[in-house]
Amino acid sequence: MKEVLGDIERWRSAGRRVALARVVGVEGSGPRDPGATMAVSEDGEVAGSVSGGCVEGAVVTEALDVLARGEAKLCTFGYSDDEAFAVGLTCGGTIHVFVEPLDW
């Protein structure tokens, strides 16, 4: 989280709302450990990352959705048979990403 503080501060001081997405669980092979953080401003600026690159786009979409609704949510990204066409991790693992408005 420390690496995204500068951007968060900049956005907040400009009066922009911010969503935080954090990896809170990894099953199997995962590119980043729990705690990996991405911050997204309401106008779509991005700082930090939660994966090796494979799900970043989907997380930004979720973050903007969370800001629009004002509600936190737990998102899961990974490969399984019934989600073969969903956004996945090339490494075959599953990550759980908690996305929330930074309103605390």
Binding site: M1, K2, R22, V24, G25, P34, G35, F98
Partner: peptide, 8 residues
């Protein structure tokens, strides 16, 4: 309840 405990 699942709680993410993040240690800085």
């Amino acid at each position: 309840v699942s709680v993410f405990v993040e240690a800085f």
